[in-house]
Structure formats: structure tokens, C-alpha cells
Nucleic acid binder design. Sequence first.
DNA 1: GAGTGGTCTAGACCACATT
DNA 2: ATGTGGTCTAGACCACTCT
Lengths: 242, 242
Amino acid sequence: MPHFKSQKDDRPYSPPKPLYEQVKSYVLKNMESGEWPAYFQLPSEHTLVREMGISRMTIHRALRELTQAGYLERIQGVGTFVAAPKKQPKTLELREIEDVISGHGGRHQCDVHFLQEEPIEKDAAALMAMTPGKGVYRSYFVHRDNGLPVMLEDRYVSPQFMPEYLEMEFTHMTADTHLSRKFALLSHSHVIQAAVSNAEINHFLELEATTACIVINRKSWLGEDVVSAARLVFPGNRIQLT
Amino acid sequence: MPHFKSQKDDRPYSPPKPLYEQVKSYVLKNMESGEWPAYFQLPSEHTLVREMGISRMTIHRALRELTQAGYLERIQGVGTFVAAPKKQPKTLELREIEDVISGHGGRHQCDVHFLQEEPIEKDAAALMAMTPGKGVYRSYFVHRDNGLPVMLEDRYVSPQFMPEYLEMEFTHMTADTHLSRKFALLSHSHVIQAAVSNAEINHFLELEATTACIVINRKSWLGEDVVSAARLVFPGNRIQLT
DNA sequence: GAGTGGTCTAGACCACATT
DNA sequence: ATGTGGTCTAGACCACTCT
């Protein structure tokens, strides 16, 4: 039987992990090793108190936090169980272009090619859930990493939600950041495709030849309403998403 | 001054919220109303104990949970503060290929082109954190949607963690699903690139001409160890990630 | 009734930061 | 020295489930 409290005594210079963290590690270790498989009923709090010599509140905190994190399931009056193998969603975090660039020490710069109000075309109207022909704000940016173009941003913005869009400053803050600042509860949906560059993309991204590009279509929602829709084009040979 | 404990007495039939939940609501209400703006320093635990007539452990639990949820920031020896407006990460959920296909009513099918042990080459060894030349399991699958190839899966698997890999069945369950079933605590990291198809990819995906493809490099981790690394190639004109 | 988890308390000691 | 948050205890009462 291991000594759970030993760290307090014998290693005064290694920062001792809190007891509740030790309990969490102990449980996770048993889960990793396969000792406690899915649906396994853990020893009761009272049993752990006895076996580990730790007070119930501390045991309870450890188990509660593991439950909040999704590792365990607890049923009052019944017991504590290893959670069913969660079909865990594999998520990819899309970082802001500025963060990607500054993350490897690059200098971010944004060219505004145009920024205007225009009547919205049919395709974009469907995207924005607007009626075709109504006025929409449209912007065309090229983002550069130490001068090299790494992203083309073709964006529609709803005048209703962001009437000040045409007057904003984009050289030091991206449109995405502006939107997130204004609307704390903004949510996003994405569609990712691959495509080869056409003449327009080659021109704006200063590509010499046809190149494979990642295209991210991002919609930004405020509840049921679309605030903005953007097409982000990354030349595949100059950048990778991680 | 409101009576925080009153629910216990006067409303025996409405389930009284736990005290720590009441404290959390109290704090959130002050944040929402603008009374406690970003960076505002909250009353100390001791002050809240006095003002609310609730024990410190309970106050502490409420503030700790709000901190874990990102609403507050706590600095030992200094105080508790309303967190800065968080710039929320934009995440993309990568669904399993089977789910994508069955999601639009397609029939998923998986061809095993090979499944063998081989000495690991230098590049792959770095990927898997193995020593070059050691044995590794390698598989080459083509996933089809109603017969049409939609993904090439080139995968390395660590024999140490999954010695049974060569004997498994992949026509009705993907390697990813097998891995997730076996290891509940598997985590993943991804790198996404765009590339044009080469002769090999054209052959396996039955492409007529050079095509832009999305390439997802997925590493599956068990703590610090790499259990598997896969290169997933999607022809950009046949599928889109969402 | 016995066993489980959920909450709460009053006090304690500690690590850390500021004055 | 004072005030802050971080942890831990020993015990209590409760709600719930199962037998």
C-alpha cells in the first residue's frame, strides 16, 4: 500500500502536490492502466477515506472535479463509476491569424484592398440570410507575415449589427477581433475546403503559379442571426493550420 | 442586505439551491449588471463570509468554480478579480469519416491496401518519438462514400501500445474508433495543410487529374506518448469538412 | 436500515504579496 | 505585520437508492 501523504515529509524541496491532486492522479492512473475500466464502480468515498487516510472533503473534491471533467459519473445513493468511453470530439482550434504570425515571431500586416457598401448578390445573400440586392458591407484584406501574403480575407458584414464597419481601423486589429470585442457572445461555424488558386487569388496573394489553398468559410452568429461571413484563403505552401 | 439563507426556511417546496450556487449567482449577477466590471476586485473571502453569513469553505468553493469556468481570476496574496473579457477560441470539430458519410445518407466502406509491420523511417520516427529502424505498424486505408474514394488514411501505430493492431477488423470500424475504444484518455493534435495530389494519391483515390487536397496530420497521445500518427488526405472536390 | 453521494461548518495551517 | 487566497480536517446533516 503506497503512502499517500509521504510527500509532505520526505521531499521538502520538491513542491508537494495538493492531496486532492494526488487523489485525482491515483484515480486517473487506475483508469489508464486498465485496472478500472469503463463502468467500473470505484471504492466509496468512505472506503477511500479509510484506505488513503485523507479526509472525506478532500476525497470528495477530487472525485467532484474528475466528474466535472467528464472522467467519472456519480449517482447519489448508488456510487461512483468510470464514465462510458466518451466518443470524444476531435477539435481543432483555429487561432487568429495575428496570433499564428506573432507566435513564430513574424510581423503581421494587413492591406485593405477595398471596404465599401454594395448590393448583396444572390449567393452571399443566402450565406448572410439577407434579401438579395440589399446593402451589405464588403471588405477585401490581404494579411502578410513579414511582408509575405499568407491569407486573403473576403468578408461580408451586416450593416444592421455593425453600422460602424466602414469606419474601422484594420491595420492593427483584424475584423474578427473587432467583432469579438463588440459581441462577447459571438459564435462561429466553419466549412473547410481545398482548392487550387485562380487568377484573382494568385494576384492578391502574389502567387507565381497555381497553388493548392485551404479555404475556410467562417460564419459568425449572434444567436440566430448572421453577423458576418468570411472566406479565408491560405496558400498551402506558405502556412499550415495547427 | 438580502437574506442569503432564507430559502432553507420559507420555501420548503421549491428545491433550495445549494449555498455555493447562490454565491455563484450573486457574483454573476453583479458582473452582468455592470456593478462589477472587468478587472474589478471582488470583496475578499473573509468579507463575503461576514456579509453573507456563509462559511469560508462554501464561499471558496463558489469562487473556485467561477475561476475554473473562466469568469474570475484569483491571485494568492492579492485578491479575486473579474476576468478580462476572454477572446474565445474558434474551434472546429473534426468528425469521424463514418459520421460524415452516414450524416448525408452515404454508405461507408474501407479498403485495406496494406497492414504490416515495418522498420520505421527517419521522418516517421520523429513523428512517433521512436528510434529509427524499430518496428512499427503501418496501415494504408481508402475510405469510400457509396463507392467513391473520399479519404486516404496513412497510419503509423505504436506496437508497444497496440500490439493487436495487425489482427484488427477495419471494414466496419475505423482505426480511430478502435483507438478511442481502447484508450479512454486519448488526446489528439492536428496540423492541416493543402496540397495538390501526386501520382500515388491519384492512384489510391482514383483521381483523373491533379487535384487540390486537404491533408490532416493527426497525432494521438496518451499523456506524453504518441500512440498513433495518421495522415488523412481528402480530395477537395469530393468532400468538405464542416 | 445501511450505504451512497451532496452540502456545509468552524477552525486550522500554509504560501504569497503588500505595506 | 497584515491581508489575501489554497488547502485540509473532523464532524455533521441531508437526500437518495437498494434491500
